[in-house]
Design a protein around this nucleic acid. Structure first.
Lengths: 201, 201
DNA sequence: AAATCCATGTAATTAGTTACATGATTCG
DNA sequence: CGAATCATGTAACTAATTACATGGATTT
């Protein structure tokens, strides 16, 4: 019955008890990289989770109008989360505006399209660098029963995703700059660099 | 003013005129891989696009209650689409249920989590094989001013994406099976296979 | 005769964003 | 004293899905 947002909140509370405010800001890093919600969505969802007895709260004094609530996950909450974790995710329809733009790119000015992909490429490169820095702060690879395994696994996903995006943006930029008569680069050279030598990242 | 769905429809109509029904089914392949909508969303959006004069329609007889409408893009529609294509996409919050599950995986039974990732891996492998088959049907790489460039570019994106997902799922499965005491595999060996030898795909 | 496809629309509901509303504490 | 932070909530709106509603043509 619980929505995916509900499970995202349970996932966060399983790590430690938090206030609704903390949850809303935690939907920044690292949870926000793969699930986000505003406080206006979080507060009503917490009320539903409390009603379902998957979560409880403890009222603690201020700051603010003395009404800070610290939410924690219950035993039933942990059980529900465990079950949900191993169930196949419900298929979400893909909606990727940049890919859509690439599908319409034949209509646009190649120089302008190149600028767009250049900007996107740089954004992905910045994100990749930040993720790699963060990964470097791990001295060991946490075992899968360790809470920190989640941090590491999602970081690995982020790094892999940014690299995929960087590869594709670079290929797009190359295609957009290719002389029509000289023949475009077949994608294989870009996207299957594993066996032999490859363009350096 | 036009929504992204509006531009997705313009992108489809720029290729050829279609009925609302055809648009709804075209949101299957290939457009559906990066933008989808149901007919209940498409029909009202078409009405808005007609009102904005970005699209016109021609009523043609049946089948059905003699009210089939063939929509085509106008000159103003092409202009609007060209402008939109090179503008930076509006940031969409990431929502990835599988990554969220990986973040909660430390709580779940590793054997069950492995099953989940194994299923996901197989689905990605099937999709990759289908995309690669489709790519093989291209005898040349279309130039970026060619309408078919859009098909090729989005196909390349799909192939790159599926490979990234396959890499990550395999790494997850490996981690979940790793003996805790023997030490987990550092991600670098999986995710940075470029310079040296790498596990075969 | 029934099922499926072609074809277009509206209504109800859920998910999510933006804006509105309030108020104490802390830092500069 | 003003701005930022901590803190919780509701209201209005947009986006999107599911369900409701209709009906002719074609295939089994």
């Amino acid at each position: 019955m619980t929505s995916t947002l509900g499970y995202a909140i349970l996932t966060a509370l399983a790590r430690r008890a938090r206030s609704g405010y903390e949850l809303a800001t935690a939907m920044g890093h690292p949870l926000g990289y793969f699930w986000t919600a505003r406080h206006s969505q979080i507060h009503p969802e917490l009320q539903r989770l409390v009603a379902a007895e998957l979560v409880t709260f403890e009222q603690v004094p201020g700051p603010g109008p003395q009404r800070k609530k610290i939410y924690s996950i219950t035993g039933a909450g942990i059980d529900a989360l465990r079950k949900w974790t191993v169930e196949p995710p419900q298929a979400r329809p893909e909606r990727d505006e940049l890919v859509l733009k690439s599908y319409a790119a034949w209509l646009a000015d190649p120089a302008e399209t190149t600028k767009l992909f250049q900007m996107q490429l740089e954004a992905h490169e910045r994100r990749l660098a930040a993720y790699e820095d963060e990964r470097a702060s791990f001295t060991d690879v946490p075992g899968c029963e360790n809470q920190r395994f989640g941090d590491y696994a999602t970081l690995c996903h982020g790094i892999s995703y940014e690299r995929h995006r960087i590869d594709w943006c670079r290929w797009m930029i190359d295609q957009l700059g290719a002389r029509r008569d000289a023949g475009a680069t077949p994608m294989t050279a870009w996207h299957d660099p594993r066996p032999g030598g490859a363009p350096a990242h």
